[in-house]
């Protein structure tokens, strides 16, 4: 177990190292920070002075060393636009994005498991067919179209839901402002969460259905039937356990994917999260902010993947944790 843990940790560090190199070469080559900071009227001599002051004329390795040293201390530079530490700006927007992902995950978990299991148990009922039909349509509709459709229907035509922003938020610990505790906040969360969930929900329903159908064919389920066990016990205790194993692995990867899709949902709903901030930073060529976003998101990917691998190793006794043959 410990060997497996160390191996995973080493891999995570290597990946983070690669991300840091990529991020730094972006910072080194992308755009001209001076153009963003000062106007047209500043003279060439003053520009040079500012360049030296910012250390932009130092050699590559010196700059990379400084970058890593600062990054390890949590300093990823100062955003050119906000004039604040880039990491603080990103982390300030992180809760909004995480709440979006959390809300969407809730929808996915509470809908995909019952629907997937039901359509695996009764593959020929009209309801299962409807679920499968819905899921293939769901896969085919891009997330931004779902979002636009929801806005058009519920915000413009019916006027039930707000179409942009987070609404009222409740201050929590450590500056975390949550939208889950006010009615207005929840109303603002519903449409973005549904559109974010819409991209993953069909995938999970299909995956759970396929895995469950396979498990129901296996010998141990047949022997459970032969023993005359309660059907509910067979489906939800014996079969569901083995169904969820592959679902966990895929689920872990998909959490990372959801972070990517938040960029799309946040753009449509003008949700003040990391993804929206990232696109703004791109348009302003706000390099420190871009770099900070890459590192934070890279860390989220690496952490979720590592945790999922560890959980998978713990719940699945057939995985060879130590990697011995």
């Amino acid at each position: 177990m410990i060997a497996f843990f160390i191996k995973r940790l080493a891999q995570a560090i290597v990946v983070m190292f690669v991300i840091s190199i990529i991020s730094f070469s972006i910072q080194d080559n992308l755009g001209d920070p001076l153009r963003e900071m000062v106007g047209q009227s500043v003279s060439e001599a003053e520009r040079q002075e500012l360049r030296n002051e910012l250390g932009l004329n130092d050699p590559f390795l010196v700059q990379y060393g400084r970058f890593v040293k600062n990054a390890l201390q949590g300093d990823l530079g100062t955003s050119y636009f906000f004039k604040e530490p880039a990491l603080d700006v990103i982390l300030g927007k992180l809760p909004a994005t995480l709440e979006l992902v959390f809300g969407a995950s809730l929808i996915i978990v509470f809908l995909s498991v019952p629907l997937g299991v039901y359509s695996a148990i009764n593959p020929h009922s009209w309801f299962s067919r409807a679920v499968m039909g819905f899921s293939i349509i769901g896969i085919s509709v891009p997330v931004f179209l779902t979002a636009i459709g929801l806005i058009y229907l519920f915000s413009i035509e019916l006027g039930w839901m707000p179409s942009f922003g987070r609404g009222d938020t409740q201050p929590m610990f450590w500056g975390w402002e949550s939208g889950f505790f006010t009615w207005d906040g929840i109303a603002h969360l519903i449409l973005p969460c549904i559109s974010l969930a819409s991209i993953m929900l069909p995938l999970f329903i299909r995956l759970i259905r396929a895995e469950m159908m396979e498990v129901l064919q296996s010998e141990y389920v047949k022997s459970a039937w032969a023993k005359g066990l309660n059907p509910r016990r067979i489906y939800f205790l014996h079969a569901l356990k083995n169904t969820m194993l592959p679902v966990i692995t895929v689920g872990g990867v998909q959490i990372g994917t959801m972070v990517a899709y938040t960029i799309l949902t946040e753009t449509v709903f003008q949700w003040p999260g990391m993804g929206f901030l990232f696109l703004e930073a791109i348009n302003r060529v706000d390099t420190p902010l871009i770099v900070a976003y890459l590192i934070v998101v890279g860390a989220i990917f690496v952490i979720t993947n590592t945790i999922v691998d560890l959980i998978y190793g713990l719940v699945n006794p057939t995985v060879n944790l130590a990697g011995k043959k």
Binding site: T257, A260, I282
Partner: peptide
């Protein structure tokens, strides 16, 4: 494995955004 663990969408957005900016 490493390539797959980063979602396509994420990689594509980052790469294209940086190309556009530069």
């Amino acid at each position: 494995d490493v390539q797959l663990s980063f979602s396509t969408m994420m990689v594509a957005i980052v790469v294209l955004a940086i190309f556009q900016a530069s």
